[in-house]
Amino acid sequence: MPERDLCQLTGVSRTLVREALRQLESEGLIEVIAHKGPVVSRITAAQAIGVYQVREVLEGLAAQLFAEHASVEDRQALHAAFTEVKRADAAAKRIALKNKFYECLVAGTGNEALGKTLYLLNARTMLLRAQSLQAPNRWNQSLKELEALVAALDERDAEKARSLAVNHVRRAAAAAMHTFSMDARQSKKQGSAA
């Protein structure tokens, strides 16, 4: 991604492109390699496992706190976001709407530190979410898991909500890790053919 090309493509100044690249680097989405410039980062299987381990804890806590503290308005916003998620028909739209769902979930926790911590993981979470949703039937299963979570949140069952949120993250992790395995097998095949 040469800066000059990015400036021409976006129609913005080199300063703005550099600032955007620094932000993307801080989020772990690109790496700047000496004498080569910025390149898109790839998440390794080990990094993915780490992200999912942290998400399990944080999203479980978010579900628990939402069940315990969310206002009527928070619950209405979550339901509206979930309705949008269910209607999403394209992969990019699904990811954006799931982000909105999680923003509503976190907003209803009343815990600013939790929101900021999850925000720091968000860039990698989006990449992994895109990867996990490629697994066969994952989207439909994900919707069922979120529906059960929303029901537990409506019941204000904090323990059940936490358990369902953790389970949802674990299933997403399994789907994403399966795609890592497929990538590794495909790389081996390509290496053998060469």
Rank of each mutant, 00 (worst) to 15 (best):
Q64D: 15
G108N: 06
L65H: 09
Q76V: 13
D89T: 03
A90Y: 09
V72N: 02
A77T: 14
A77N: 14
A80P: 07
E73S: 09
K86N: 05
A88W: 00
A81E: 00
C104E: 04
A81F: 12
A80Y: 11
E103V: 03
G60E: 12
E68D: 02
S71F: 07
A91G: 08
A62K: 11
A62H: 06
A96T: 11
A70G: 06
L97N: 02
A70N: 04
R87A: 15
A63N: 03
L97K: 08
V85N: 00
F101Q: 02
Q76K: 11
T83R: 15
T83E: 02
D89G: 15
L78E: 03
A81I: 08
S71K: 10
E103Y: 04
D74W: 02
K98L: 08
T109D: 01
R94C: 06
A67N: 03
E68V: 11
A70H: 04
E73W: 14
V72C: 05
K93R: 14
A67L: 02
Q64A: 13
N99V: 12
A90E: 11
H69C: 11
E68F: 15
K98I: 12
K86L: 14
S71A: 04
A96C: 05
F66S: 00
A77K: 11
Q64C: 05
A63L: 13
K93E: 12
A96S: 13
I95L: 13
A63Y: 11
K98D: 08
A96W: 03
A62N: 11
S71R: 08
A77R: 14
